[in-house]
């Protein structure tokens, strides 16, 4: 039964996932090409100096991409369920309703986490060819909040989409946008490091939000 539910989610999201994989790949190639070009133009020593003194990051193109990934995954998963109230068919399956929803949420979270892990691994491995461990470590802490925004954005988007009342959706969107801004502080590399744990805990708590929307849907709100 779980396989069948995951199969349904895959059918809904496969085109979006393919498209996003292409976009992430293109952004990665572009980032490395741009960095290579900078190094060739200014020389490695000058480039390192600029990097350390001014705190320039290589991967600013990626800043909002993980968040977009989370939101797009939620849209492709839940808009078809809400359209014409197909969610009634899903919740009528002979499985406990919470398990059905948790399975759907875990699928979406898995998509965002797998994308994030692969992207971070590829980017940092690429950097490790030309840069010392300290710079790679700083870059990791710098970009990590952006990638944490992916599952958080996914869960908030799922919460808003499943909410049955349109005007409440707007009310949910305002605090969601405010909450997401915490993931995008323009702090110096490493400055966000102590807050990462709180962002991670916040993201885990967000799992309860779509479940609340489901309860409201079930009550016919």
């Amino acid at each position: 039964m779980y396989k069948s539910l995951i199969y349904k989610e895959w059918i809904k999201t496969r085109s979006t996932i393919t498209l996003l994989a292409a976009v992430f790949l293109a952004a990665g190639i572009y980032s490395f090409m741009k960095t290579g070009e900078e190094i060739r133009l200014t020389g490695m020593i000058s480039f390192w100096d600029t990097l350390i003194q001014k705190g320039i990051n290589f991967f600013t193109y990626y800043k909002y991409m993980p968040l977009s990934l989370g939101i797009l995954t939620a849209i492709t998963q839940y808009i078809p369920e809400i359209q014409q109230k197909r969610l009634k068919l899903t919740l009528h399956l002979p499985m406990p309703e919470t398990r059905i929803i948790i399975t759907m949420l875990l699928y979406g979270l898995a998509v965002t986490i797998i994308f994030s892990v692969i992207t971070i691994a590829v980017l940092l491995s690429g950097l490790s060819v030309s840069f010392p461990r300290e710079i790679i470590r700083l870059t990791f802490w710098f970009i990590l909040p952006w990638f944490l925004a992916s599952p958080a954005g996914y869960l908030l988007a799922a919460w808003i989409i499943i909410e049955p009342k349109p005007h409440i959706r707007i009310l949910c969107a305002v605090p969601s946008a405010a909450a997401m801004s915490f993931f995008f502080f323009n702090a110096k590399a490493g400055a966000m490091q102590p807050f990462i744990i709180y962002l991670a805990i916040f993201t885990i708590i967000l799992i309860l939000f779509p479940l609340y929307s489901i309860t409201r849907f079930k009550e016919g709100k």
């Binding site: 069948s4 199969y7 349904k8 809904k12 078809p80 009634k88 068919l89 002979p94």
Partner: peptide, 28 residues
């Protein structure tokens, strides 16, 4: 599992094809 539900407008998961939807429900 003992209750069959037909929604107004014969709504189904329309992103499936004819074979996929049968395979999907058959496992439940």
């Amino acid at each position: 599992a003992r209750i069959g539900l037909l929604l107004e407008g014969h709504i189904q998961h329309s992103y499936f094809n004819v074979r996929q939807i049968e395979q999907y429900y058959s496992r439940f």
